[in-house]
Design a protein around this nucleic acid. Structure first.
Length: 417
DNA sequence: TCTGGGGTCCTAGGACCC
DNA sequence: TCTGGGGTCCTAGGACCC
């Protein structure tokens, strides 16, 4: 049976959700991500704002210069998660094999649903209409035999379009597109390809695999396959289905102003450790590697990792490791711009941990369960490390506002620690 | 144009072991 | 005694995606 994959990509998602709640924003230049004078980048821009050259990932200050009359909004992550879930629910009516690839993007496996939904293009339009009717949001939709071609075709269909690539026509569809359109080809790879005189996907498809392998290693081989429309290894080559456990969990924070205040920095590390530990417990995962991320005022960035002799999900153990790394890595001279805490080498609850568990640890874990419960009800800052309370925290550390759906957001916070 | 935050995957070198 | 070879784990950094 011919495989049929559908890629759904919401159009200007964050902006469109904002418009649902405030229709007066419609048609106006809107920038989601923060104020025009803040440190940060654009998370989403309305089509009206894009006309001025504003696009996502652009520094907010730049966007403010390009389009001073734009409406700048911080955004509402809970709303985006809510609408992402709505989209997921609608898609689930069309196929049991649905996967949210990010908050505004999903893959469906529609293989064998022809008797139910009709031919591919018909199914696509039904889906498009269902999303429009169920959420009031527009999306673009690509259908093809592979994830890769489905994704590229949804991009070509933007905005508000449906595009089906007939099986066998993949290479012809891709050939005239810029190499940059291939997922995984970013600025650097594009530049390298241009140097070799390769500009279009068609140029790429004609090359020897050995040539690409020589220039780009393992990635070059995949690239050759992608140019012909194959999923060609890696994540793209997996079946569409249930999301797997995360491979890492991290939180980081950029300070509004660079700082050399050790107290402030270490307090921030404790907060970040708490956030990481809380998410580990939500996922019922344990981390064996803890990593610190440090960025100084010159944007010079280092990471320092430490592998523990056992896996953990406890705030104190993570904080202990990360503060240790921090004291080794930073001599107090250069002002710090960003701190991050990263948990890797994750393992499930099942496994050797249970055997090694000491009764003391079990009690601690029980205590943290209660802490998480209280935090969920009253906010992160309702329960915290003693040091945090003592030194006070001026700089507030936020959750990732544009996280994947399905994770609980910490509710309201007080301004006082 | 002074550059967020949360992820994934890949590479390369060194330690260590057999 | 002038330098094996493979495997695995760990660390650091970087490209890329939304």
């Amino acid at each position: 049976m011919q495989r049929l994959i559908c890629h759904v990509d919401m159009d200007a998602f964050f902006v469109s959700v904002e418009e649902l709640f405030d229709p007066s924003l419609k048609g106006k230049p809107v920038v989601v991500g923060g104020r025009a004078n803040q440190r940060g980048v654009v998370a989403a821009a309305s089509y009206a704002a894009r006309k001025f050259g504003v696009h996502s990932a652009m520094p907010l200050r730049t966007a403010g210069q390009l389009c001073p009359h734009a409406i700048f909004v911080e955004g509402h992550p809970e709303r985006y998660r809510e609408y992402s879930k709505k989209v997921f629910a609608i898609l689930s009516r069309f196929s049991p094999l649905v996967e949210m690839a990010s908050i505004d993007e999903a893959y469906l496996d529609l293989t064998g649903t022809e008797r139910l939904h009709g031919p591919p293009l018909k199914a696509g339009h039904l889906l498009h209409e269902a999303i429009r009717g169920g959420t009031g949001l527009r999306c673009s939709l690509g259908l093809a035999v592979s994830r890769l071609v489905a994704k590229v075709s949804s991009d070509q269909a933007k905005p508000n379009g449906v595009l089906y690539i007939v099986p066998g026509r993949e290479a012809r569809f891709l050939a005239p597109l810029d190499v940059r359109k291939i997922p995984g080809v970013g600025k650097k790879t594009e530049a390298s390809l241009h140097k070799l005189g390769i500009r279009k996907v068609g140029d790429l498809a004609g090359l020897e695999e050995a040539f690409l392998a020589a220039h780009f290693g393992k990635w070059g081989l995949a690239l050759a396959g992608k140019a012909r429309g194959a999923d060609a290894g890696g994540w793209f080559d997996t079946e569409v289905g249930e999301a797997e456990d995360p491979k890492s969990i991290s939180h980081e924070h950029t300070f509004n102003e660079d700082t050399v205040e050790r107290n402030q920095l270490e307090t921030a590390l404790l907060k970040l450790s708490e956030m990481v530990a809380k998410r580990l417990r939500e996922h019922r995962l344990y981390a064996r590697t803890i990593q610190l991320k440090l960025r100084d005022e010159d944007f010079f960035t280092i990471t320092r990792a430490s592998t523990l002799d056992h896996a953990t999900q406890l705030d104190g153990e993570i904080a202990g490791a990360v503060v240790g790394l921090f004291r080794q890595a930073w001599n107090g001279a250069k002002p710090i711009r960003l701190l991050g805490v990263h948990a890797g080498a994750l393992q499930a609850v099942e496994g050797q941990m249970n055997l090694l568990e000491e009764p003391k640890k079990a009690r601690l874990r029980e205590a943290f369960r209660s802490v998480d419960h209280i935090r969920n009800r009253f906010g992160v800052q309702s329960v915290s490390f003693a040091k945090t309370l003592k030194t006070g925290i001026r700089e507030r550390v936020h959750d990732n506002p544009y996280d994947l759906p399905g994770k609980t957001a910490d509710s309201k916070r007080t301004n006082e620690p």
